[in-house]
Design a protein around this nucleic acid. Structure first.
Lengths: 183, 183
DNA sequence: GTCTATAACTTGATAGAC
DNA sequence: GTCTATCAAGTTATAGAC
């Protein structure tokens, strides 16, 4: 694996563990068994690391959204697929949801606006899908923004289980979201 | 209001906005129209600010838990009360859930362990309540840890609405958690 | 592409006048 | 209890030898 790629992988882990602001380039260098200055032969700045991590994941989620929208199934089934893909991404690559959700606010200013724009685009598609499913009668009619926020937030804890062997069951989790506590 | 209290209030807001690590004592002083050094006539350190915010909220949630456990109602109804109290706290004092959930990891080491102990205590009570409700047949039987994490996470977005006038409806949110998307 | 050395700056916190 | 002045340590990043 290229040193550059190793740096990005380790940076994502470090940002997840300590948060972007509390993570230092010294930390990062030490984990890679390099001197801090050597990092700069591969990357331009700490902010570049955050930028790549945030935007790679933003595009990944937008790609997932596109895939799900194209499927020839009902809106409710598209939502289910979307949730399942979210769960899988969170379990396979736990840094993704964390950085995507918690650390983007540290992006420097024109990037921050671009990032928020992608995020709004994603949320807009998701909300439309929820509204469709409600019109179909598959979902109970509720304010789509509230439902969207609740759904996305409810998956946020998944990344914490990264280290543990015991992964939560995808079907049970989807069941909980679809049927609620009362099931 | 005492200067000391103003400092704590503003610190909580600042930590919520920028995160503990990215928030500087200079930021804080400026918002209070003080010189940075003046802060230290009222508080001992930046860490003290985080400590108070985290532990005050930990005790507040434990108090809410105690209140709910003592009510002479079914386990499922206790869970509902607990969720409603969580929602109200998040809407009334949006810094609470945020700092309590995101910034505690920056507590210095013996405090961190004490904090996690309180948190485990809270989660243990909550899990027991969920298990009771499942045994009563009010809730579908699912791994309690999964349900707990999903519930607590699903409320995390509430703090973002702090500024907006439009607050989400408590009943709709509780309905979504109890009945799921399909309602 | 790694290293040593260091520049330029920000951080939390203190000393001491008023 | 606020201020000015300042410190010691930590930060990102660069220069230049090898």
């Amino acid at each position: 694996m290229l040193t550059k790629d190793k740096i990005y992988v380790e940076a994502a882990r470090l940002f997840q563990e300590k948060g972007y602001a509390a993570a230092s380039m010294r930390d990062l260098a030490e984990r890679l068994q390099l001197r801090p200055s050597s990092l700069y032969s591969h990357i331009r700045s700490k902010e570049d690391l955050l930028e790549k991590i945030c935007f790679d994941n933003a595009h990944r989620y937008l790609q997932v959204m596109e895939d799900c929208l194209q499927r020839p199934v009902s809106a409710a089934q598209k939502v289910e697929q979307l949730l399942r893909r979210h769960i899988r991404i969170a379990l396979e690559d736990p840094t993704s949801i964390t950085v995507f959700n918690d650390e983007w606010r540290h992006l420097p200013q024109p990037l921050l606006e671009r990032f928020l724009s992608l995020r709004r685009q994603y949320e807009k598609s998701f909300k439309q899908l929820l509204e469709e499913a409600m019109q179909e009668g598959a979902f109970k009619a509720r304010p789509p923004q509230l439902v969207l926020n609740t759904l996305l937030s409810s998956l946020l804890w998944l990344h914490r289980l990264a280290a543990k062997d015991e992964k939560p069951d995808e079907d049970v989790l989807v069941g909980l979201l679809f049927e609620g506590l009362e099931g």
